[in-house]
Each structure stands twice: as structure tokens, then as C-alpha cells.
Simulated assay, not measured.
Amino acid sequence: MSKYNFSAMPDAQGYFGEYGGQIIPPELQAVMNDIDRAYEEIRQTPEFQQELKTLFADYIGRPSPIFHARRLSNKLGGAQIFLKREDLNHTGAHKINHCLGEALLAKYMGKTKVIAETGAGQHGVALATACALVGIPCEIHMGQVDIEKEHPNVVKMKILGCDLIPVTRGTATLKDAVDSAFEEYLKDPQNFIYAIGSVVGPHPFPKMVRDFQSIIGAEAREQFLSRFNALPDYLVACVGGGCNAIGLFTAFLEDEAVQLIGVEPGGKGLDTGLHSATMTLGKPSSLHGMKCYVLETEDGEPMPVHSIASGLDYPGVGPQHCYLKDLGRAQYETATDQECLDAFMTLSRVEGIIPALESSHAVAWAIRNAPKLSPETRILVNISGRGDKDADYVANLLGL
């Protein structure tokens, strides 16, 4: 019997332990509570469940397979590495899982526009795709720095018909895109819906996005039990906001023998200030309507953060991850930009799989740790997205 019980998380106020909640003005709390009520009502209906199930299968292409990376495992020695292939989903990443859910929710609620931020562009592409499918206008805010790094995804968003808003304020990256999108949402929260791109923000979004993403771990658990009659020894996923990781972890939270590893960006080194290691070096504070670990300046402002992966350069993290860290149920470690690049190239050339730079952080952890573990050990790495969007950037960086 597990000593953990996560079934009641979050509580009615949206808290995971001391993290989460709604740190927003009362009038906005009322809007968020309306979304929560609609979500809890709609998600129980057979019509919503059937439509989402059908789209997961016939539109996204679920279940995503688990691949045994034999050549990589043999090259490293030690543990056997398996990959959960979210990169094979329609649109190329895990983001489509919750974007379809949020777009359907917007349709059922009669909203007139869906607004969101994006970092690497995967959430933007997925949401633009989902909104095209259900016929709702879509507006995506993206930092100018990320627009220049992630050109393929920018083009896809425009082709799909979304209104792309460049954000030039601050560091012109993910945190600034969130601020910009939220300001637009506040102009008409009754008719607009903000489709948050991760398990962050005010309640109910960390819960909603987790629920939609939990299909990853539910599938993986069933696939592993069917194949090995056993569970993985380690689950490994990159963490920025943390939605792909919580999606993988959720089905295994009460399996104490399964070790949960979140890998966040060490950037150019933890001693340089050029990183996004929120869980490693941050402290409890508030950001974007929630209480969570935050990287802050001495003045208490969110710190400018850095990662080679645009989808991970965020100074906060999902509240459930913060709770899991404090509880000791999950461990959070780092991988540097260089380790990430090395992992990107290694997986590409050894297994013929080009991972997203975000996912490459998790691959880097497996490459670093597999040789230390026994051959009977099984590591399951979430390949949260494919690296098409990063190919030109990496090629220029490495002079390929």
C-alpha cells in the first residue's frame, strides 16, 4: 500500500499542498471559477469524453508507441533506455493533448476567441491546429527572440490561420509572452479564454492541463505492464512549466518503486546566472497567478532566465511539481546547454530520432546516468517533441 494519495489533488481552492491557488483579483477569480465549473461539468459528459477519445485516436494518432533504444543502450552500457514517442503525435509534440481539450472546452463554453502564449512554438502550433479543427479564432503571443529561433513553427502557425503577436518587451521570450497574452485576455475574459500552455497559472489550469496530459503516463503504464509485466524503474522528462513531465508522472505517483526525475535547464552553468533551474535554485514565491518556486532577483522580480530550449526558459514551474519536490516524491536535476546539444546529436545519429531541444535535456540525463545502473534497470524517457523546429538553429550553432 502506497504512503501517497494524490487522488484529491488539487484541493477545491486549487492548491497542491501550499502551491497553486488563485493569486489574482477577485473579479478574475470569478471568471476562473466559471471555467472550473464548466470544465468539471463538461468533462463528465459522454459527448465530450467520446469526442476527445476519438480525436486522440484518429486525429493525434494515440497511443504513442514506446521504443526500446537498443543501440543507445548498448553504446552506453548499463540500464536499458526506452522512449515514449510523443514526437510522433500530430503537430510533433505532447502539446496537442491539452490543446485539443482546451479548444473543445472553449467550443462547449461558447467562447469567441482563444488566446495563448508560446515559447518554442509547439504549444502555438498545437493550439492553432486545434482551433482550426473546431473553428474558433486563435491569437498566439510569442517572444521576438523565440520567433527568430523557431522559424518553422512560426510559419506553421501562420499557415494554420492564427493571429501571431510578436512580443518585444523585456527579454522577448516566454515569460514576456505570457504577460502579453494575459493582458489581452483581460480585455474580455467573458468571451475570450486563455489556453495556458503548461501546468501553470491560476487554478483550474494546472489541474486541467494535467488531466489532458495524463494520457501519456496512462498509456505508458499499460504498455510497460503488457510488455514486461513490470513498471519502469525511472521516468525521466524535461521540466520548464512541466506539463509533459506531469503527464508522464501522474499514472505512477503512487508507485513508490518508480523513481520520477524532472530535468530542467542548467543553461550555461548554474554559477553563471544563465539558466532556468527553477526547482534547483528558486524559492517559493508567486508568479502568473499561482504560488510556486520562482527564480527571482534581489528586488523580488522574476529573474531573466536562459535555456537553449525556448520551451523551457521560464522562471517558474507548475505547482504540483513544487509539491512533489517538497514531498520528496520526485527529484529535479539539471542538464546544461552543452549536454543538451550532445544528447540531441547522439540520439539523432545513434537511433535516427531527432528530439526537440527540450526533450534532449531528459535524454542527457539518461546518457549521463544509464552507465551507472545495472542492465536490468529500465529508464523511460519522454520524448516530448521532435526536433524539426530546432534543426536549422542547431545546424547553424554547430556549423553543420
Rank of each mutant, 00 (worst) to 15 (best):
Gly119Val: 06
Val125Ile: 11
Tyr393Lys: 13
Ala172Trp: 09
Leu324Phe: 13
Pro355Cys: 09
Leu347Met: 15
Ile81Val: 15
Pro265Gly: 10
Thr280Met: 04
Tyr39Leu: 04
Thr118Met: 09
Ile24Thr: 13
Gly61Trp: 09
Val239Phe: 05
Gly78Asp: 05
Gly316Tyr: 04
Glu47Ala: 15
His141Gln: 05
Val239Asp: 01
Ala370Ile: 06
Gly161Ile: 07
Glu47Asp: 14
Ala132Leu: 03
Met290Val: 08
Leu287Tyr: 15
Pro265Asn: 08
Ile24Trp: 06
Asn382Thr: 10
Asp271Ile: 07
Ile23Tyr: 11
Ala120Trp: 02
Pro189Gln: 06
Gln29Met: 13
Tyr4Gln: 07
Glu222Tyr: 06
Pro304Cys: 07
Thr171Arg: 13
Thr129Trp: 07
Tyr332Gln: 08
Leu225Tyr: 13
Asp179Tyr: 12
Ala251Ile: 01
Ser2Cys: 07
Val258Gln: 11
Pro304Trp: 01
Asp326His: 11
Ser198Val: 10
Pro265Tyr: 01
Thr129Tyr: 11
Phe205Gln: 12
Val125Ala: 10
Gly282Gln: 01
Lys107Thr: 00
Tyr15Arg: 13
Arg37Asp: 12
Glu264His: 01
Arg169Glu: 15
Pro319Phe: 09
Gly311Cys: 07
Gln50Met: 10
Asp211Val: 00
Asn229Gln: 14
Pro265Cys: 07
Asn396Thr: 09
Asp36Pro: 00
Pro189Ala: 05
Gly201His: 02
Trp365Asp: 04
Asp87Tyr: 06
Gln259Lys: 15
Met1Pro: 13
Arg85Lys: 12
Ile354Asn: 03
Val154Glu: 02
Pro375Leu: 09
Phe228Ile: 09
Asn97Ile: 00
Ala130Pro: 11
Asp313Gln: 12
Met279Phe: 11
